[in-house]
Design a protein around this nucleic acid. Structure first.
Lengths: 179, 179
DNA sequence: GAAACTATGTCAACAGTGCTGACGTATTTT
DNA sequence: AAAATACGTCAGCACTGTTGACATAGTTTC
């Protein structure tokens, strides 16, 4: 079994005394796991996974973004995206439109079906967040958002800011006239 | 390409107006992705993945926990754990000790090597957290922890609390006299 | 206008991590 | 002695990520 051989078992638990912020490390793990479990269950009904969710989410958030832009947001390779995107297109959740300026580009848009699924996936997550924020003051909520944003790599924080907030503008540099 | 066929592209972005808390949903995605990228890079040097990290983390946090207890914390199957745990044992990061009361059980302990790796993985994460909390008041920090804890499924919150805090007690129900 | 570059798609192979189902062995409980 | 438990293990599968290579349009550059 061991015990006799090689290096001996360390029987003391690591605690915050060791200068590591264990509580938030662990809370992030548990919180994120449960946070993603809500949509995961719905996705299973469609034969989709978490990757589909991400694509669907950002296409709904930034309609008309190109494949390259989507890759840049998700930070995955085009081969990884291809499988997932193809399924979303084949199932009618996303539509590709040839880019108006540059015809090599494929602008990605959600369909009504894709919009509905995105909302269905976001709702339980939003509800969980809402419940977790119950009793929190506006200032506390701000502090939480600030913390999370600072957890993102500095180079990418601008990307987070460029997401449409409240019916405001679109992604920097691209117009978005609705039809 | 589409455009002509079937359902039409929706060109309006979803915004917070739709009653969904998009900002925190997205912040959690980006924050967690970058939060895990630090250890991922180190793990690659060892041929390990994120699953190894989790096992190593909780074995260091709860030394002497049994396989069943570890499965309960991670919420994965024993077959998933087996692969990863075997590698950590074979590489001398974790040691199994036969349970004293019940000899069917295998108590898991980190070795000095396993402890060192766990700390090396936790350090960049802790630093990121520390930096993100810079300028936050004690009250704000409390609000952040509270929020994260409430994001965890209610049934599992007790588990989070049972982790050793500051050199205090061990997991409920098991003594932990150090040698 | 030809050459070079760019945006996208696709084929193939592989790695990591999760799952289910089945079976074996040691040990404890009943 | 029989049943239940803790753990290990074999086999196969799914999802999502990776590299590398190559093809095809379309755009830019000289």
């Amino acid at each position: 079994m061991a015990e006799s051989a090689a290096s001996k078992p360390i029987r003391t638990a690591i605690t915050s005394d060791d200068g590591i912020d264990l509580s938030i490390i662990e809370l992030l793990f548990f919180a994120y796991r449960d946070f993603t479990s809500d949509p995961d269950q719905i996705l299973a009904d469609y034969g989709f996974g978490r990757a589909h969710h991400r694509v669907l989410h950002f296409v709904n958030r930034m309609p008309g973004l190109t494949v390259a832009e989507l890759l840049d947001v998700l930070k995955i390779t085009k081969q990884s995206l291809a499988r997932v995107l193809k399924q979303l297109i084949d199932t009618g959740h996303i539509i590709q439109v040839q880019g108006p300026r540059d015809r090599r580009q494929r602008e990605l848009y959600p369909t009504a079906k894709g919009r509905a699924l995105m909302l269905a996936l976001a709702r339980p997550q939003s509800r969980r967040i809402h419940d977790a924020l119950e009793g929190a003051s506006a200032a506390e909520r701000t502090a939480i958002e600030r913390f999370l944003k600072l957890m993102v790599n500095a180079e990418l924080r601008a990307q987070v800011d460029n997401l449409p907030a409240d019916g405001a503008g679109k992604i920097a540099g691209r117009g978005n006239g609705d039809e």
